[in-house]
Amino acid sequence: MSVVLSLRGISKNFGAVAALSEVDLDVAAGEVVAVVGDNGAGKSTLVKVLAGVHRADSGTIAFEGAPVTIGSPAGAHALGIATVFQDLALCENLNVVENLFLGRELRRSRLDEVTMELRSWELLRQLSAKIPTVRVPVASLSGGQRQTVAIARSLLGDPKVIVLDEPTAALGVAQTAEVLALIERLRDRGLGVIMISHNMADVRAVADRVAVLRLGRNNGVFAASAVSEQDIIAAIVGAVPVPEDHRGSDDDT
């Protein structure tokens, strides 16, 4: 698999607080990398660095092998890194089409509503999205539908990498399943997916690799198929990894 996005030694300080120090992360095309960590581990900061909201203080970012700087949200987008924030950043007073094309409307001085609506439908169909009509304000959609709209919007610029911040945090069971299926479809389309999550079940359901952050530092990268939930949690909370042959002994005694 070819690595699309590669972070090396990324650090970001807020005053005296080191939110990220020397963080490395790779994501390949057609791969889902889950980034997990406790509160304050630096997950959100990492998302914001990738999205161009914050600029890293040091470290290098390579995109498709070439070193790049991500200076602004628009810059991240131009590179091909799309970010879906936890709060989705949708305008509730605008309808689905208006939200999907916000900031990149077709024919800026005489909006091409018909083409925008057609392309919205096309995109939503590709994602097998269950949205009855695109001409209602986003406020009237359910949480899962809004997540779908936010993800669909991030796909409009034809990105190579998509960053999802807590995509299932606010969702019910059915909606979570819907979004996880959507993430798998993104992977099948050959996108690199970085998924920030708290939910171990979701991580294990879709992730290929799991990167653990702890207190702003890397604390291990695991292949999702080979790692147990306990090992991930141990890495998250910083417990000393227990050697394999000692594990059973506590239960025995």
């Binding site: 999205a51 909201v53 950043a89 949708l90 007073n93 605008l94 900031g103 409307e105 909006l111």
Partner: peptide
Amino acid sequence: RSVFAVGGNAEAARRA
């Protein structure tokens, strides 16, 4: 469109 977007959710508009 951007006027309505900023009025509805300025932060979302900025990120768009």
